[in-house]
Design a protein around this nucleic acid. Structure first.
Length: 299
RNA sequence: CGCGGGGUAGAGCAGUCCGGUAGCUUGCCAGGCUCAUAACCUGGAGGUCGUGAGGUUCAAAUCCCACCCCCGCAA
């Protein structure tokens, strides 16, 4: 089939790779290069780099709302548009400009976790399972009819990255199968629908009044949670939930066990700002954190 | 020129401001003690202090210059 791919981050590459082997990629649409990294250098998206490397035309319009852009897409004569983490509003004209429409990979069991951050929110919520939904985009936010779904269990130590590794192969299989044997999707139910809002950076500062298990899930889901120690950010990259009580937000010993709203959180892997990540053991060699240290303080 | 932290023993850090014997903790090796230990005691190895036969100096981890690399914020 003749396809157009729309996507941006690196984790969409396996899908792109698979598509390129069995189908004809007419064009890639992705986010325009933007300043990123320490030097704020203009950086192309992973998908953009891939397209360059494989000699596939890459387009980076700031919006798809302009008629010229829409006409450009329609004139390519694609059979379908594959959308995976494109992070851009797709207007009706584009939704309907190919025979088979815009086919979207959504990493959740729709209608649960519609929206921007389904994998993060499903881990944060402590769900036991999630999955991939293959759907046709419509005007709503992930409300379109579904071609199919595959479930996976969420492991106790799941992170968005590990989850992607589980979901991606499923997504590839489902998508390839659909393209080989095209069939019509069935409408989504509204039962159990919920939204996965975009992650805000204010969510990264650890609120020790939450339960230890909730904080632990946040640590895994966001992978950027931190507290302030001696005026510096300390990221917590891995932690373990223990039983026990103590003054909320303070250490109950000199080994980085912190009392939470409920339970104790044992901090296992940490990273001081400007430094690489370290095990608890290494961290404590250079930074003493005596019993009773309050980690709630902002300064 | 986005803002900022950092590179010193295998690891995590102090020392740099104010130049003068290379330090701490841990790990490792050997020995001792102990029913036992992530316990304790004794001894030991391990360093081109990111790079530059750079600059200044009697003397540079420390001051000056250039470059390389890592990271936090931000995006």
């Amino acid at each position: 089939m003749k396809l157009i791919f729309m996507g941006t981050p690196a984790f969409t590459l396996p899908v792109l790779e698979a598509l390129s082997k069995k189908h004809e990629l007419l064009a890639i649409y992705t986010r325009a290069p933007k300043p990123a990294g320490h030097g704020m250098k203009l950086t192309k998206s992973a998908v953009h780099e891939w397209g360059d490397a494989h000699n596939i035309p890459v387009y980076t319009p700031a919006t798809l709302k302009e008629e010229l852009v829409q006409k450009e897409i329609a004139d390519m004569g694609a059979d379908a548009i594959i959308v995976y983490a494109y992070a851009m509003m797709i207007p009706t004209a584009v939704l309907n400009c190919t025979p088979k429409g815009c086919i979207n990979i959504h990493p959740s069991l729709l209608p649960r976790w519609r929206g921007a951050a389904p994998m993060v929110r499903t881990i944060q919520a402590g769900d036991n399972e999630t999955g991939v939904s293959l759907m046709r985009l419509d005007e709503g936010w992930d409300t379109g009819p579904v071609f199919g779904q595959e479930k996976v269990a969420i492991a106790p130590d799941e992170t968005p990255e590990s989850l992607r590794d589980k979901l991606n192969p499923l997504a590839v299989d489902m998508l390839m199968n659909l393209l080989d044997n095209f069939y019509e999707p069935t409408p989504q139910s509204e039962m159990g629908a919920c939204y996965a809002p975009k992650v805000e950076k204010t969510e990264f500062l650890i609120d020790w009044s939450l339960t230890a298990s909730q904080i632990e899930r946040n640590i895994r889901a966001f992978e950027k949670c931190y507290f302030i120690l001696n005026g510096k950010r300390v990221k917590v990259l891995k932690a373990k939930v223990l039983d026990g009580t103590g003054a909320t937000g303070t250490t109950i010993d000199d080994k980085l066990q912190v009392a939470c709203g409920k339970g104790i959180l044992d901090l296992e892997i940490l990273q001081k700002e400007g430094k690489n990540s370290t095990s608890k053991h290494d961290f404590l060699l250079g930074t003493k954190v005596p019993k009773g240290t309050n980690l709630c303080a902002i300064n």
